[in-house]
Write a protein that binds this DNA or RNA. Sequence first.
DNA 1: AAGCCCATGTAACTGGTTACATGATTCT
DNA 2: AGAATCATGTAACCAGTTACATGGGCTT
Lengths: 192, 192
Amino acid sequence: MALRYAILSLLADRPDTGYDLTKRFEGMLSSHAWHASHSQIYPELRRMTDDGLVEVIEEGARRSRTYTITDAGRAALREWLFSPPAGTPARNEHVLRLLAIPALDLADMRELVARVTEDIDALEAGLLSAREQFVRDTDPDARPGFAVGAMEFALRYVALEREWATWLLAEQERHAAGSAQVRSTVQVNDGA
Amino acid sequence: MALRYAILSLLADRPDTGYDLTKRFEGMLSSHAWHASHSQIYPELRRMTDDGLVEVIEEGARRSRTYTITDAGRAALREWLFSPPAGTPARNEHVLRLLAIPALDLADMRELVARVTEDIDALEAGLLSAREQFVRDTDPDARPGFAVGAMEFALRYVALEREWATWLLAEQERHAAGSAQVRSTVQVNDGA
DNA sequence: AAGCCCATGTAACTGGTTACATGATTCT
DNA sequence: AGAATCATGTAACCAGTTACATGGGCTT
């Protein structure tokens, strides 16, 4: 079901074709919230049309169909948003990679955290320039929609990752120093 | 493949049975990184045994088998962690629900953000007490493993959600005030 | 000995991915 | 005219979920 609501929240911003929805999925949505490829999106738009949640408002060149969200679609989206959170499980391989870092030894951890931090910096730079671009291309008086919120989320999120990774390494260094201390104390005691 | 690495990173901390791995998945892993149920975990442990990544070190009561990570398993995990990040897509219905909020009208947004914020506070309280419990039950000299990192991540993450939601609402309020301003200016001009 | 939780197993189904396929339009 | 890209469609496959199933061991 999540796929429908992902589509509905994109269409709530503005009408779009299956093709362009697919491209919008490839941005912030697919890296943080929900991914879908065109092979899922086209059939789903059909089913949603049958269910009255979306509507074709234009048939353009190259057999393209532009869909809008209907009132029923907005109502369904609203109902879903207000429904009690179901505690549905997440799948995020990127987060898994981060959480797995403590399985490494300290030297590996230092190297990997350095690398991860660089990657995050690069990603952040990309996000920032994408946002600048977006702001340039967008009417400043328009109500901020999906994309603005998603970008802000992504920016805050990459900062979290960087800070967490830094914290993790510091924590592990602290522990390593601590247990070295304990070991040397033991040795002193042994020698006494 | 992510499932194997999720299992490996749990086993890197300590040996465990399929049953207990299942329960460990239900914690931080399943809400932020990766979810799996026992029906996936048992067969996967078999396959991983065949591939030499894990090993049965103990057969206990009630046919329970305790698995450890092998050297090959550690090597595989390490290789995966150091392999270039694949940009694999995420699935997180909870994030989707947040990002979809701007589809609502302002009144609904106010209500939902308030509710979401309460939920986050409750979740955070739960996490904090779980961490206290964990600290009490754990040898302070032990090297911090998966769970410590995951808890810290979760705590930082819920804070991000709360701050983002607050930011979003402020942004939307600002816009609503701004466009009201524009409307009234137009009216004054019309009247002049 | 009855009932409950521990511990594992597996089969049917569903949602999602990969891969193949094709027509229409624009660009050069 | 040919290449590139737009725009959609669909079928086979795979990973993951749901549901059913079962035996062992602890507790009362």
